[in-house]
């Protein structure tokens, strides 16, 4: 513990990141450049999210880290251990008990509260990137609110697939101003972005950008009048807990094409099973599972 400054980064770096976060909160959806540091993990593993988390952590925090909704995957476990080791903060897997949640590509099923901060890991912060490769041009487009191109992408989806097939990283407009990439969360989670009581922070380490949604921001998913936005999920119930309203992962269970759908939010699923809910394939909940 004594070998590291609290939460790994030095105090000057954390101040720099906090300034970027404050600016991002003041201009919802605007990508604030910051001097991203090298972290002891490869780019693409959440270096942006980790730096934002490090800048926000206080010793009293209780940290939860999820990767695609799961608390027990490699990325989540290693980042959780990283902060246990370098910050000595308490950790939890329960959404309700966490004060700071770092997430990769999901928003927890349980509604967040005003006492929580949600930190997203962002691979590519620029929603216009794949349509317009020039950074100078995309910045100008943001500055001048020229967002017609975003709809060209959705138009292409419909013309090719009949519906808007973009299923994740679905572009949103924040407070009627900036178009923002919500990180690769499934579009099922898009409605949760809007009017959320928690602070939502987005960190992109390799691209050196931080952006944010202050509590209760208005976030609208882009769509066409005759092809409205639809939050979609697999058409099934969770096989373990029976939930019909949570986002599901498809799991292959044998090599004969057998598959089940289970909650992607492991804590949500565990809590439901603990409360006695049981899905088609689920075993009764035992405390040892947890």
């Amino acid at each position: 513990m004594s070998e590291y400054n609290f939460a790994y980064l030095d105090e000057e770096t954390k101040r720099m990141i906090r300034r970027a976060i404050l600016k991002a909160l003041a201009i919802p959806g605007y990508q604030v450049p910051f001097a991203s540091r090298e972290m002891p993990m490869p780019y693409g593993w959440g270096t942006g999210g980790v730096q934002v988390t490090a800048a926000c952590l206080i010793p009293e925090d209780r940290l939860k880290v999820i990767d695609q909704g799961a608390d027990d995957t490699t990325n989540a476990v290693s980042i959780r251990q990283f902060f246990e080791k370098t910050a000595g903060v308490a950790v939890t897997e329960e959404t309700a008990r966490a004060s700071l949640i770092q997430t990769r590509h999901r928003i927890p099923e349980m509604p967040l509260t005003e006492d929580q901060i949600l930190v997203y890991q962002v691979p590519i912060p620029e929603p216009l990137r794949f349509l317009e490769p020039r950074e100078t041009e995309t910045r100008k487009m943001h500055a001048l609110e020229e967002y017609g191109l975003m709809h060209v992408k959705l138009y292409e989806d419909i013309s090719r697939h009949g519906t808007i097939s973009t299923a994740y990283a679905y572009p949103v407009r924040v407070e009627g101003r900036y178009v923002m990439d919500p990180s690769p969360i499934p579009k099922f989670d898009n409605p949760k972005l809007s009017d959320c009581p928690a602070i939502q922070l987005f960190g992109a380490g390799r691209e050196q950008r931080i952006y944010a949604l202050p509590p209760y921001s208005r976030v609208v998913s882009l769509d066409f009048e005759d092809h409205p936005f639809e939050a979609s999920k697999a058409d099934a119930d969770c096989a373990l807990c029976g939930a019909g309203d949570s986002y599901l992962d498809e799991v292959i269970v044998d090599d004969a094409g057998g598959r089940i759908f289970v909650c992607s939010d492991t804590d949500h699923c565990r809590a439901r099973r603990a409360a006695g809910h049981l899905g088609a394939e689920g075993a009764p909940y035992e405390e040892a599972d947890a």
């Binding site: 349509l131 020229e146 017609g148 191109l149 709809h151 060209v152 138009y155 292409e156 419909i158 013309s159 090719r160 066409f224 009048e225 005759d226 092809h227």
Partner: peptide
Amino acid sequence: LRMGVSAGGNVGERLMAVGARHYGDIR
């Protein structure tokens, strides 16, 4: 032209840039 975008999308881009938001009309 935008070479990665369909002919319809290329023609529709200007319409969408000035606020057209009805897929059927644009097409």
